[in-house]
Amino acid sequence: MKSFDLVEPATLDEAIALLDSQDRSVRAIAGGTALMLMMKTRLFQPTRLVSLRQLDGDLRGIRVNEGGGLRIGAMTSLAELEYSPLLAGTYPVMSQALRTLSNIRIRNVATLGGHLAHGDPHMDLPPILLTLGGRISAVSRRGRRWIPISDFFVGYYQTSLAKDELITAVDVPGQSPGVYCWYEKFTARSADDWPTVGVAVWYSVDSNVITEARIAVSAATERPMRIAVAEALLINAPATRQVFSKAADAAADEVQPIADLHGSASYKREMVRVHVRRALEHALNSRSNGAG
């Protein structure tokens, strides 16, 4: 690695003043686990890193929002999330996914903001957040804006965050009782591998009929994304294996998988089919509902 200016502002205003909308070699660093990998392989050579580590305060921690949802500070480490009873009680599907997200040392250091801003399609929390709904608070010299999570991931390692914007928090809405959630992660090689496919599902059932449904796929595709055609097949249908299979088939037909080390495109398509169905089934069986 090459040397760079490392600045550690004490306030958010100072931090955003140090970012630069034009200069790609200036970036914020939080836990830095992903950024360091890019720097070590010289994919990214910063001239200035703006460390967010001194900005604890509001940026760190989990609070209950109005409506029973949570506001999670962007600098909250993934381990803090993993061990949070509040998170476990509100979104057990997230707590569960965090257990197998990379490894403990990475989770000890990596932050939620960094996890999202990296835009890596293999990450575990983005598909879950796509199904839970929510919004991301982005702050720059121009002020704060809320980006709906559904608008955040725009392409392969691309997000809608501007170069000079910082994520400060993520709002996740409260979940109504009776919602079924699950995250299914399939690794084709070792247990700690990046997933071949990740599938998050969220649906509510009333009198054995599905009233609302969200399905998000990651890793197989260039970005984490909702699969609307599959969701549509679930709504107003009974929560049965046949229905789940039809939705899974539709999802498999809809996705445009990217071949990589974790599988060819056709294998990934097949794995989308298998794991969408399994996620829907597991959600029902586990009764792991979003409202705890």
Binding site: L37, R189, S190, A191, D192, D193, W194, L261
Partner: peptide, 16 residues
């Protein structure tokens, strides 16, 4: 070699 790293070439760990 397209997987010349432990991120891309996996060896068995405890859970495997």
């Amino acid at each position: 070699v397209v997987n010349a790293s432990f991120a891309d070439y996996k060896i068995p760990g405890m859970l495997d």
